[in-house]
Design a protein around this nucleic acid. Sequence first.
DNA 1: AACTGGGCTAAAA
DNA 2: CTTTTAGCCCAGT
Length: 116
Amino acid sequence: MNTNYHQIWQTVQLIPKGKVASYGQIADLAGLPNRARLVGKALGFVPDNGWNNKAVPWYRVINSQGKISLPIGSDAFERQKSLLQDEQVVVIGARIKLAEFQWQPDLAELLFQLKF
DNA sequence: AACTGGGCTAAAA
DNA sequence: CTTTTAGCCCAGT
């Protein structure tokens, strides 16, 4: 697989349970500025069934407006919403409440984990 | 070598 | 609050 995808998945794994981050934020932290769309694409490849959905918590990534980016009412949307709610994240409609952008990574720790 | 369409964004209306 | 607009970048085709 693409190196960029690994960089992205790796960064997404750093989002703590019960918190969320935006596509752009993940792109920046992964060292890929201005590539939010790539993050969306990369997350689309993460299997959401069984064991793997906890290895890479794709559902903790939302858009810059604080909302779930998937089409409202789609299966994928409902899946993301319930996975977030399982972690006590409040979701009203597509909008995330209480957990918006509250993930503040420790930069030193982040860089360490990314093996920079 | 184009061309296209995305799980995007910031700013403006 | 919402929708639009105009940038944006690149993997896949």
